[in-house]
């Protein structure tokens, strides 16, 4: 019998496809998320829009809170660590969370190195803005990717940009000849084997969700139509007027992302979405981390 193999790590992400992963800050929100049909919850101390508003250093959450959330729900529980903070990851592994997000939403701990994720038993999801970044994270052991978007803004524009970039770069890769591929491999510091896998699959070799700015059922369906496998919703749910109603509506939208009639119905009467922010006016962009 084998445990913690790449197949099992990738496999759990495959089970989440077509679903919505919701940010929650306590057990009560986790209950609302599970009841609304979330496929997993992301346990964190403050949702990104509050991290933005509060400023300061954002760190891994209190283990007590993570344990309370794990006790509350039966769906997988994910939690975030700072980029490069492998001790926070060791702590989350000791807590036996189901997935670790090495996340730019928290304040980076290491400006040079990401965590060597293949050393961990718990699988990792990481953010990307483009294909090269996604493949570097996969080389380090990430078994799930999410496009970064710009968390805590309620503005979908960066999520769209990152998803389109990954798609366009994947298409461009498929048209490259051998010498162009070698050059790309050197410039992007990614193994040639991994590039060849992307070329033959026509997509990333792991599940890829969209994140960062999804606030409405239409936003979620937009990202699905652009080709992602599912969505993370952060501040978008619990910073809106009617979290339970909006959570259910976004779950419905992801299942029925190609049915405008169902999307219209799901979008009806949800009250105010979270307040949005203009990307150009942000003091701090997280995606560049």
């Amino acid at each position: 019998m084998q445990k913690n193999t790449p197949k099992l790590k990738k496999g759990l992400a495959q089970m989440l496809k077509g679903g919505v992963i919701m940010d929650v800050v306590n057990a009560e929100q986790a209950r609302i998320a599970e009841d609304a049909g979330a496929v997993a919850v992301m346990a964190l101390e403050r949702v990104p829009s509050d991290i933005r508003a509060d400023g300061g250093v954002a760190r891994m959450s209190d283990p007590k809170m993570i344990k309370e959330i794990m006790a509350e729900v039966s769906i997988p529980v994910m939690a975030k660590v700072r980029i490069g903070h492998f001790v926070e990851a060791q702590i989350l592994e000791a807590l036996e969370v189901d997935y670790i997000d090495e996340s730019e939403v928290l304040t980076p701990a290491d400006e040079k190195y990401h965590i060597d994720k293949s050393n961990f038993k718990i699988p990792f999801v990481c953010g990307c803005r483009n294909l090269g970044e996604a493949l570097r994270r996969i080389s380090e052991g990430a078994t799930m990717i999410r496009t970064k978007g710009e968390a805590g803004t309620g503005n979908i524009v960066e999520a769209v940009r990152h998803m389109r970039t990954v798609n366009e770069e994947t298409e461009a890769l498929q048209k490259m000849n051998d010498s162009e591929l070698e050059k790309y491999s050197e410039e992007e510091r990614t193994a040639l084997d991994l590039l060849k896998e992307v070329i033959s699959l026509g997509r990333l070799p792991v599940v890829n969700f969209a994140a960062g700015g999804i606030a409405t059922p239409a936003d979620a369906a937009l990202m699905m139509q652009l080709g992602c496998d599912g969505v993370f919703v952060g501040s978008g749910i619990f910073k809106s007027d009617d979290p339970a109603g909006r959570a259910k509506a976004i779950v419905e939208a992801v299942m029925n992302f190609e049915s405008p009639k169902i999307l219209a119905k799901a979008s009806e009467g949800l009250g105010e979405a979270m307040p949005g922010l203009e990307i150009d006016l942000l003091e701090q962009k997280y995606a560049g981390r």
Partner: peptide
């Protein structure tokens, strides 16, 4: 949880198959 997911060999209806438990 996920830490306890496993792969093993199974016998299904008399045939050996891989079993992936997540």
């Amino acid at each position: 949880g996920q830490l306890h997911s496993f792969e093993t060999e199974l016998e299904f209806n008399g045939k050996k198959i891989p079993g992936v438990f997540i």
